[in-house]
């Protein structure tokens, strides 16, 4: 994954501007990205996942220049190669747990094929949930919104992992969990990542987690955020 001379501003807001001159991440790495809120990490992740394209420069992921893809192709690319975990409220509240886990497969034929190769969508979803420590009662409970926050994060992790995407992006996935649950969650997540050799980019402001990662970088070491006065 390579960022080169990237400049980006959100359309309609002239105030905020992110510049990344050079940033490279090798396959299989475990990156911990440290940045307080407002440091541009959401924008950085949006660029990385191809939700937005850079105004200048190139973002290359898995040898693909995202800037050269049309937005629909970027959406497709994201569904095929990324698993994304948010800080909280990761689930569609009205869908079942299994449907939530299987959601990316509806948009990615490759990941669906991989899940099918592992014995079917439902089976694979349940296996992942089981490995992440979610019991059957919670899985078959009425709706995703009835789960505890810790359970919800595990479902989100299962959704990110299903169909084995190459990159997992986690935006402070443990910040809404207490310390014990944090450790347990990361143990389970890392165990699964090791199995497939998946690249992990995790954002956090908690430097105590650093020992688990192959690389720890502060966002402000390579990215510059400009905040002009109100335009």
């Amino acid at each position: 994954m390579i960022f080169e001379g990237v400049r980006f501003a959100w359309p309609g807001s002239a105030r905020f501007r992110l510049t990344v001159n050079n940033f490279v991440l090798a396959r299989g790495e475990r990156l911990l990205l440290i940045g307080p809120s407002g440091s541009g990490k959401s924008t950085f992740l949006s660029l990385l996942a191809g939700i937005v394209a850079p105004d200048q420069g190139t973002v290359t992921v898995l040898d693909t220049d995202l800037g050269h893809l049309k937005s629909s192709a970027r959406d497709r690319f994201r569904s095929e190669h990324f698993g994304i975990i948010f800080q909280q409220f990761n689930l569609l509240p009205y869908a079942s747990v299994v449907d939530n886990v299987a959601l990316p497969l509806s948009f990615s034929p490759k990941r669906r094929a991989r899940a099918l190769a592992h014995g079917g969508v439902e089976l694979e979803a349940r296996r992942l949930l089981d490995r992440l420590g979610l019991d059957a009662a919670a899985i078959d409970g009425a709706r995703a919104s009835n789960l505890s926050v810790g359970q919800q994060q595990r479902v989100a992790a299962a959704r990110a992992l299903i169909g084995s995407p190459e990159l997992i992006v986690a935006d402070e996935p443990t910040s809404s969990l207490d310390r014990n649950h944090q450790q347990a969650f990361l143990d389970l997540l890392f165990a699964d990542l090791d199995r497939a050799g998946t690249t992990l980019i995790m954002v956090s402001h908690d430097e105590s987690l650093a020992s688990r990662f192959s690389r720890v970088v502060r966002l402000d070491e390579f990215a510059r955020v400009e905040r002009g006065t109100a335009a």
Binding site: S71, R76, R78, S79, L91, L92, F107, S108, R159
Partner: peptide
């Protein structure tokens, strides 16, 4: 909007 962001994150386009 949260729901929309989740859908976007799993690869749904704005068209979806």
């Amino acid at each position: 909007r949260r729901e929309m962001a989740i859908l976007r994150s799993v690869g749904a386009g704005p068209g979806t």
